[in-house]
Nucleic acid binder design. Structure first.
Length: 378
DNA sequence: CGTATTTGACCGGCGC
DNA sequence: GCGCCGGTCAAATACG
């Protein structure tokens, strides 16, 4: 798996696929870094990359990521952000996670009302099941974007009544894709477009080896890109700031807070991908029907009305809002008990790896994070 | 009337 | 092969 990781170009490398020399690359890199630094003070994509450009996994990486988490905490603290406690705890499920991909569990304290804090995404419940040896049923949610395969499961912790176990699976690629689309379009306009990478190889990550379950209907790639004209437009609006967000500070990539999944076909021609390859194991969208996904059932309609509060960007694709901005929820207070706010905002696109990493080893760290998902996110 | 939720049925993976 | 169990489907129902 580590090999796979190395086969896949890192995000910046991908963005700079028009490889026009190390000098120019450095310039752009520094420009990106400069932009990022104006709005974000946590670990950067490079940090994450360096941490995750590993070959082995294990304690070493735990340590590094813990360090990132702590660094981010320090940054937020020094920036005057004050809160009181780790509102969200990434919980290890090592025995399960080894079999999973793009899956991670958060332990979220509620204030006893049992409600779950908004995580910035719109979810539709599609099932509930009582689980053996657990008094509490488990609820199953799916992202309301019909072409997003992100899911989550919510269940109450057995031992702690005020704790919810929220398991996220899959990535919200609504924004990721649009950015890459834009990049791709720009590259096409450029005189020397880079050679296309085969989708499978580009994937390397995501759920490559895993037999795709029918999270999406037949004929639709399991990790089909989520593209909306709005997304593309939004991406066009903040080309350089897609990488990271300043957690409320800085410029948001979306001007409208209550952005909706407007029916793109009604407003402008739907764009399609022309073979763009994605580093996340995302495949070019097939234009099998007007959606390009053969997905024309009743769920489709929801995309027109589903309001989405995301501000756009890869961070949102990867990290739930309550992790990024745990205090932002208005509907459900999250128990907070320590001084320092958001957990490390990690944002990057990247590839799969199989090792699991943990942010859970440092007892002094305000955030106890175990994320096997990082193996696929980063 | 359109959308969201509920809930029993169904399906597939896994262990025995 | 069989049964258990978790996950998903989809019709029925609730809601605004």
């Amino acid at each position: 798996m580590a090999e796979e990781l190395h086969q896949v170009p890192p995000p910046l490398g991908y963005l700079e696929a028009d490889d026009d020399g190390p000098l120019r690359r450095r310039d752009r890199e520094s420009m990106v870094n400069k932009l990022i630094s104006t709005v974000y003070s946590g670990p950067t994509i490079s940090d994450i990359e360096s941490v995750l450009s590993f070959t082995g996994g294990g304690a070493h990486h735990h340590q590094n990521i813990n360090q990132l988490a702590d660094d981010a905490m320090d940054n937020y603290s020094s920036a005057g952000v004050v809160s009181t406690s780790p509102p969200v705890v990434f919980s290890p499920k090592t025995e399960v996670l080894s079999k999973m991909e793009n899956k991670y569990t958060l332990k979220i304290k509620t204030c006893g009302n049992g409600l779950l804090a908004e995580d910035g995404y719109k979810w539709r419940k599609y099932g509930q099941k009582s689980i053996k040896n657990s008094p509490n049923p488990r609820s199953y949610y799916r992202c309301t974007n019909p072409r997003c395969n992100a899911k989550k499961q919510v269940e109450r912790a057995m031992d702690e009544a005020d704790t919810l176990l929220v398991t996220y699976e899959g990535l919200h690629l609504h924004y990721t894709y649009s950015h890459f689309l834009l990049q791709h379009q720009q590259q096409q306009a450029a005189p020397d477009p880079p050679p296309a990478r085969p989708p499978a190889a580009a994937g390397g990550g995501g759920s490559t080896s895993k037999k795709p379950k029918l999270l999406q209907p037949r004929g639709c790639p399991a990790a089909a890109p989520i593209i909306d004209d709005d997304d593309a437009a939004a991406a066009a609006g903040d080309l350089d700031l897609f990488l990271l967000h300043g957690g409320g500070g800085g410029r948001s990539s979306r001007s409208s807070p209550s952005r909706c999944w407007q029916h793109a076909a009604a407003t402008s021609p739907r764009r399609r991908d022309d073979g763009l390859t994605m580093p996340l194991g995302v495949f070019p969208q097939q234009e099998t029907d007007e959606d390009g996904c053969g997905f024309v059932d009743h769920h489709r309609r929801r995309q027109h009305t589903c309001s989405n509060n995301n501000k756009g960007g890869l961070l949102e694709d990867v990290v739930p809002l309550l992790v990024r901005r745990p205090c932002s929820s208005t509907s459900t207070p999250i128990t907070i008990s320590r001084s320092s706010s958001p957990p490390p905002s990690l944002s990057t696109t990247t590839t799969a790896a199989s090792s699991s990493v943990s942010w859970n080893n440092n007892p002094t760290s305000p955030y106890s994070i175990d994320m096997a998902i990082l193996s696929n996110i980063f």
